[in-house]
Amino acid sequence: MIEGIYTSVSGMTAAMWLQARLGHDMINANTIGYKHMRTSLSDFAALLESMDAEGNVVIQDDGNGVAIAGEETDFSQGPLRSTNRPLDIALSGSGFLQIQTPAGVRYTRAGRLHQNQGGMLVTPEGHAVIGEGGPIQLPVGDAIITERGEILVDGVQHARLTIVEFGDPGALERVGGTAFAAGDGALLQASEGTRVQQGYLEGSNVDMSQDMASLIAIARLYQLAQRMTLAQDEVLNQAVNELARV
């Protein structure tokens, strides 16, 4: 009988976890290059099923590393917004920029780039953008970036951005900083179809109306699980205090 309480509390936990993901997604509605996480009511059931008796999620290992139950990223194109800034780039297509972080190579579509003091092309966090010959060093001058990612300064080509795509984007792992790490089996390959657009940034592709609807629905599920917990407690109360009197 006592398991009933644990089950309904697991429901509250599952709802809360999904709410965190939804809130995170909605709050990133203005984040350049952000990719939407799909969260729906069916994730609630899936999450609940994957919980053990104590309310902990048992993560399944499906052979491609650890599968995060339900964290499904929507890699669709976000809207392009003109900024007229020479070192803002947006990618049209399924490609990613490659950046070098202390934790290893990461992939991002957030195309705000800067030149650091040494002329190296970096992200706002200071991570080097990787070109065909490694990190990209540019002289001072007006840079022109072509659709194919070639970078020209004063008419001379200095570097070319490495744009890659993945055979299985589902194997990409979200790592923060609007970037992804490639898991095993992501099938990295050069992206020929992606066009680089200078003077633009790609906006977040968050589906706000869907997120808002899910947020409200899951808040209701949380409420429901709370009522169930109270009801279980009521039944337990009767079992302990009233049945015993007979």
Partner: peptide, 30 residues
Amino acid sequence: HALFSEALDDAAELPDELDPRRYLGVRVAD
């Protein structure tokens, strides 16, 4: 111009990857 970046705690000590503590929302990157 302010630019946001996704904030995620990727620290390995979190017990599992769906933990709400993983999601930190957003921060101003630039």
